[in-house]
Amino acid sequence: MKLEAIKQVKGTAVPVAGDDIDTDRIIPARYLKCVTFDGLGLALFFDERFGEGGKPLGHPVDAPEYKGARFIISGNNFGCGSSREHAPQAIIRAGYDVIIAGSFAEIFFGNSTTLGIVCVTLPDAERAELMALVKKDPKSEFMLDVEARTLTAGGKTYSVGIKDGARKAFLDCTYDSLAQLLSGKDQVKELEAKLAYRF
């Protein structure tokens, strides 16, 4: 497991308006029919991007001006719904590394962190400002500093919410937890032997 520490992320942003963007909207259930995560980026927000017969609905992620964006700006309770890791997998495979929202559903947050997607929070008013900024100037450069907990965009610096555990994991390069867990093997064995139940 070779990972890189995530200290700063730079790039442009795409606005995905709305609260409670659930995992069924991030990736419709029919795309869960797969045995690998490859190619899931194409399914991101599929039913919001394409209507009957594949007719494009003009979703911002398809707009040429937002091509190559690395940040998603959205509303409150982002990622609610199912535990499907397919949702953050689709997001990262479509090229996005940072999500700015009002709040995140817990399982989604955990899944995203493990994959190295940085989920940060900002209050409604500040997100509205950023939304307006990228609508006016889609090429505005965003810079997230994980260490300093700041986001700079449009000549302004915002202090963002980022959970301590996640922040530390990004900086220490321990966000994929498996190596750490494996190193506790003996303690796990000891605990298992003491447990009141087994099958």
Partner: peptide, 25 residues
Amino acid sequence: VRELPSGQSQLFIGLHLIHEVTSPQ
């Protein structure tokens, strides 16, 4: 099991259930 350097906990799972959609990967 223990507290990890990340500040998170390592928790033992007594029972793990799996199904066909989220396990193949």
